[in-house]
């Protein structure tokens, strides 16, 4: 088996997929770093102070103003209210939520990247992992070896799991090294709040506690990794079902992007929560970002993603091992 996985890793590397992922990260992370830097600088300039309390207070006032505006829809108002409550909590407990430093950057980066950016990178890795063998005709060589078809497919899946895991680690490492050049490399032990719960309209702070940032980052990246594996597994199935690389890439891009958009555009549409790609923001549960859709919590999202993954695997293996190779 390890020979087969080696083969698949070799293909991923020589197809330059890993290189493309690395380059995208190397180009985009400095941009995000600069954006972050720019935002902080701007806030300081506007407030005329670098005091984070002042910034936080200003943010609360801004949000209260938005709340008063009649143009803001009702469902947004709830979210804003919860945000204010949360920021008030930071203020009351003397915690700087945006303490600069590379660890803070990679924590915030993964929270934003988990719903769209990382899934897109996963699609680049996964979308053509099987379909390219069909479009290149090499499937005919692959399946005429003395190897069972399920083993061929399993080796591809394992290679995908390995490279997705590598990609998540790479995101953290590049993020840390690059942003550290501007923000400094300190801040691993900074206390971070977690354990927020939402019940109806209220942010429940009973279980809120402080943990060192490194622990939080570990959990956040673990959850992001889980999201990425789920995206990878669904892409894997699409790659088995669709024979052309272009369509399998297209289908997955559309699915990931609409999943990410729908969750924000139509929080009242309750059925959306059963889709795989509206459940990718696992890190929100950690952060205490208010969840607008009723009934969504960490166990729920993990279950939805797991069910989608297992179903995808069953379909992928079922189809791949039985299907006639006609083209």
């Amino acid at each position: 088996m390890h020979n087969l996985v080696y083969n698949e890793m070799l293909k991923l590397v020589r197809k330059k997929r890993i290189l493309v992922i690395t380059l995208i990260l190397l180009i985009l992370i400095p941009i995000f770093t600069y954006a972050q830097y720019h935002t902080t600088q701007n806030a300081i300039k506007q407030l005329g102070t670098s005091d984070w309390r002042a910034i936080l207070q200003q943010q609360i006032i801004d949000q209260q103003n938005r709340l008063a505006s009649s143009r803001v829809p009702e469902e947004w108002k709830e979210s804003i209210k919860l945000n204010i409550q949360q920021q008030q909590y930071y203020l009351d407990n003397n915690i700087n939520p945006t303490a600069p430093g590379a660890p803070t950057f990679i924590r915030e980066f993964v929270e934003e990247a988990v719903s769209l950016f990382l899934p897109l990178l996963v699609v680049i890795l996964a979308a053509d992992i099987v379909s390219s063998e069909h479009s290149g005709g090499t499937i005919k060589l692959l399946l005429t070896r003395p190897v069972r078809r399920w083993k061929v497919l399993l080796s591809k899946y394992l290679a995908l799991l390995l490279s997705v895991s590598f990609m998540v680690v790479l995101t953290a490492v590049i993020g840390y090294l690059v942003s550290g050049m501007i923000f400094g490399y300190k801040g691993w032990t900074l206390p971070v709040l977690t354990g927020f719960q939402v019940q109806g309209e209220h942010l429940i702070t009973d279980h809120v506690h402080l943990i060192p940032q490194w622990k939080y980052i570990l959990m956040a990246y673990g959850l992001a990794w889980f999201s990425c594996l789920a995206v990878g597994t669904v892409s894997f199935m699409v790659s088995v079902l669709v024979r052309s690389t272009a369509s399998s890439m297209g289908i997955m891009l559309a699915a990931v992007i609409s999943g990410s958009l729908l969750g924000q555009l139509a929080p009242n549409w309750n059925a959306l929560k059963y889709l795989a790609f509206t459940n990718l923001r696992l890190t929100d549960y950690l952060e205490g970002e208010p969840i607008l859709v009723e009934g969504m919590n960490l166990p729920f999202s993990l279950t939805v993603l797991t069910v989608w993954s297992i179903t995808s695997l069953i379909v992928a293996f079922g189809v791949f091992t039985r299907r006639d190779v006609l083209a």
Binding site: L10, R14, K15, G136, T138, K140, L141, T144
Partner: peptide, 15 residues
């Protein structure tokens, strides 16, 4: 027992 080429000889072009 078999070695084969079905239709065109398609191998991995990037290797």
């Amino acid at each position: 027992q078999v070695g084969c080429i079905v239709e065109n000889p398609e191998l991995y072009p990037y290797l």
